[in-house]
């Protein structure tokens, strides 16, 4: 139950955060007032309208066109297959894990579990390769900090989309590392039942963290990328 609540709250926070970011950075009306209440009203009105617009536009053809337009397909062959494996395994892991974790009292079982274990291995390998060869692109070196109250003032933290993306990457990598460890260690004769319970919970909450980080990263990435050109019809 706690896991369900945490998962829902984290997912809602990530979604609203991304939507809020887009609203604040792209919409004129967001800058028309400094009152938080007014901004919130305008935000939710925009969100509702945008949701309706997107849902009206959504169709298998649109999705196919969107997927076709992804830069993934234009990557060199090794990178292309690396990311296909990475995205594919992560999507299956998240879908199977959260569906069974949230909606099936018995938890993950049967063939979906076998698939989950298999995809887990693929995910760990892909993640390792990505961290090894792409991690340096996300190294964010902060300036040396002075001890002052500005350290805890969000307005002075210089939170930018690029920095959030970097943080999201490393949170994702850390959560992926924890997922790997908490999948490996329970298979070894090291921990008894209480330890197994802790590892299981750690696995689940690491999954929440990795999913939230992936959502933020993907949201910002997609937001930054120019929209594909519309077809003439």
């Amino acid at each position: 139950m706690v896991f369900t609540i945490v998962t829902v709250l984290v997912a809602a926070a990530a979604f609203l955060g991304l939507a809020g970011h887009r609203f604040l950075t792209t919409r004129e009306e967001a800058r028309s007032t400094i009152l938080y209440g007014e901004r919130a009203k305008k935000f939710f009105a925009w969100l509702a309208l945008r949701t309706i617009q997107i849902s009206r536009r959504a169709s298998p053809r649109t999705w196919a066109a969107y997927l076709k337009g992804l830069p993934l397909w234009r990557q060199p062959v090794l990178e292309k297959w690396l990311f296909i494996g990475f995205y594919g395994s992560f999507l299956y892991l998240a879908a199977s894990g959260f569906f069974f974790g949230l909606f099936v009292p018995r938890g993950l079982f049967g063939f979906p579990l076998v698939g989950h274990v298999a995809c887990g291995g693929l995910f760990a390998v892909c993640l390792t390769v990505i961290v090894l060869f792409k991690g340096r692109d996300f190294l964010a070196m902060p300036r040396p900090a002075g001890l002052s109250l500005s350290l805890i003032d969000p307005r002075k933290m210089a939170i930018t989309a690029a920095r959030v993306k970097r943080w999201a990457f490393w949170v994702f990598a850390s959560a992926g590392f924890l997922l790997t460890v908490t999948a490996l260690v329970p298979m070894l004769p090291w921990f008894g039942t209480p330890g197994q319970k802790i590892l299981f919970e750690l696995h689940r909450y690491s999954a929440v963290a990795s999913a939230a980080a992936a959502l933020v990263f993907a949201g910002l990435e997609i937001f930054e990328r120019p929209a594909p050109a519309r077809s003439p019809d």
């Binding site: 887990g120 291995g121 760990a124 390998v125 993640l127 390792t128 961290v131 090894l132 990598a173 992926g176 590392f177 790997t180 460890v181 999948a183 490996l184």
Partner: peptide
Amino acid sequence: LAVCAFLV
């Protein structure tokens, strides 16, 4: 998994 964990 162990190799991945030891690298990452």
